[in-house]
Design a protein around this nucleic acid. Structure first.
Lengths: 215, 215, 215, 215
DNA sequence: GATGAATGAGCCTTCATTCAT
DNA sequence: GATGAATGAAGGCTCATTCAT
């Protein structure tokens, strides 16, 4: 607070505008889906002109790639932060990692909608795969490591890889359900239910670490 | 001019052609995704002309609705048949119901791709929701009933609705993984792994009914 | 006139439509020039829709390439026909070849305008160069051969290549002048003057073959 | 803060900048042609910003008009200087006037390219015609006067106007060839050949004034 | 003077739909 | 039934021009 900011105003403004457009795109994506999204929609949602989107992102395709990159990066930072905040114990870390997926503070209905929209479009879009491949692998690796630790400690018979795939698949499916619940499918799965289900699953897989509770 | 066929030729030909076009649409959907699909693509894949698609389905939207309807109906019949073939016992019926999702005889890579494509587009498309709502509810109901039976018999503490949601979400997530594995993401989840995971999950939820096995 | 045309109607119609669009493009090119031409202009001039241009030519660029190709081919056939009609003698053939450039029956103001428009755009447009290279070389070769024949017969001191370049450059320059005269520059050069000048030039270069006349 | 410059800095800077932008435009025109030229290209070539072009020229159209005006004026001064330097005799003056067109010191490949680009765009651009009309007429008049003088002296039968048009058209055509040769069409006409051809043409038209030489 | 972000009109192109054959 | 030429609305992108800094 004591000196002139070293960051040039121009540069800051540039990034601010880019983020503003990314946010608007997420909003539109959540509302209209991938196929129906037009850059005019995004411009309207941002209160800006069509031209400025191309000016900042070069093309609609690159805008969407930037949006996915942002979502993937935000997601990565979110589960990593949640895991770090959980302390050193493997059980707490795994639980935190998985339950971060359903943190209502971060995963709004719009962002979930945007994720689903991309999910459907991943087919034959190598670009999108490339963006997600790294973060996806990182997360699987983190889950796998924690499962290994628990299995080593608890002497469970399940293999680490199978436990990891079970938990990750369960989270993916719950996510889909939560997204659907948020977007006009009341009665699918709420975030609270998802949390309970994850806890139950952990208790079933690793009973010595996660004491069963009445549900 | 006399026709001995019990089914009118016109009608038969009509349905054959419609199915031919639905199949081609599924193929294109699996390859190019929802957003990039054009009527010309479908016509080319079917070896027919653009006009004939409109002639049979009136519009692109209705063609896609018909495709989703077909997929949903085929899916429904598939799990119902699997369940029926499993015999009268609830444990066998539940296992058969869930594992039908990963029957390679029915769920080809292309069909999985088509399903994912629709999934992403469900946002803001009430038509698609309407098509899936009935079959979805029917399946949830079936799963729920079987969970209730097992819980009643085994005296498990989990609630039927939570068990149902766990299993359904797990299947959804595994499906996504299998689809990704089929479409250029080797190393996600194979159909065989999915089956093992489902068995393990059943054993974890209902240990008295599904004896644990070394995995 | 006595039998059903063996040419399929479809094919004929296709080519007829293409030529119709090429003609309209030449018209617009002559009126508005290259830079200002839009495919909407061409569609309007042809009384057709924008879509059909893309349908038949795939893109504006390819339409223009097709137009240049047509002009180049038409031009080639024109001077070749004129040369052939002139008989076997080299002097007559050379005269006919050169004067064919100013035949008002073929080189309308619009076509001249279209040629000039392309000429200016040839810079950095390899495609256009490629289209013209063959016909250009063919014509230079024809002129060169005739110059060689005359020089051999008449014992002139000029080299064939220099004679050819003189005559070809003179024709190019006259063309430019005739085109300018047609398009709002009255007082440049008329086709009749161009013919006289060519004759005078031939008489000056090859006096034994072309008797000088009072001009 | 004290300025010793006799010319105001503002004014000087203004003209310097204008000329800098005109030069850059010529460069781009020679490389990309008229239709593909954008203000951003010119700005990039000049190492300046888009805004400054509009600031100095008000619009793209006026920039291009200024460029053409500059080229026309430079050209005029060039042939007038060459003619003046040739001395008082009509034959020397005519020869100098015509051969100034191919002076490599002035007519670089880029400038030739720029000229051709404008030439093609003259259709339906009254502004461009207006700019060139005066200088064009002036030059034709100069050539005509010299032809008249030679014809009067030498008693040639050709009319002055025809001689003028022959020589001017020949120069135009040679120019086109030289420009093409410079821009990726090797083997058209070099500046040296053009000079020889002009000399030969003068010898053919006015043999008493220009002694024939072995070529 | 100078910059470059921002605008918006206009262009090329795509593609669902129509319709004459 | 079937074809594919033709239409035209809509979308992405370009680029001359403006203007706050």
């Amino acid at each position: 607070m004591t000196s002139a900011a070293p960051v040039p105003v121009r540069k800051a403004s540039r990034d601010v505008r880019r983020q503003q457009l990314i946010d608007s795109t997420i909003r539109v994506l959540g509302q209209k889906g991938y196929a129906a999204l037009t850059i005019a929609d995004v411009a309207r949602a941002a209160g800006l002109s069509v031209g400025i989107i191309i000016f900042h992102f070069e093309s609609k395709d690159r805008l969407l790639a930037a949006v996915l990159q942002f979502l993937a990066e935000e997601y990565r930072q979110h589960w990593q932060a949640a895991m770090a905040a959980a302390g050193p114990g493997a059980p707490e870390r795994l639980s935190a990692l998985l339950r971060a997926d359903f943190d209502p503070a971060v995963f709004t209905a719009e962002k979930l909608g945007a994720w689903i929209a991309f999910w459907g479009e991943t087919q034959g879009r190598p670009t999108y795969d490339q963006i997600c491949a790294g973060p996806d692998a990182e997360r699987q690796q983190a889950t796998l490591k924690l499962c290994e630790a628990l299995i080593a400690e608890g002497g469970y018979v399940i293999t680490p890889i199978l436990a990891m795939r079970t938990l990750e698949s369960l989270c993916d499916g719950l996510w889909l359900g939560v997204a659907a619940d948020g977007a006009g499918h009341p009665g699918r799965v709420t975030a609270a239910e998802a949390n309970t289900i994850v806890k139950t699953a952990l208790a079933a897989l690793f009973p010595k670490h996660y004491p069963a509770r009445q549900v």
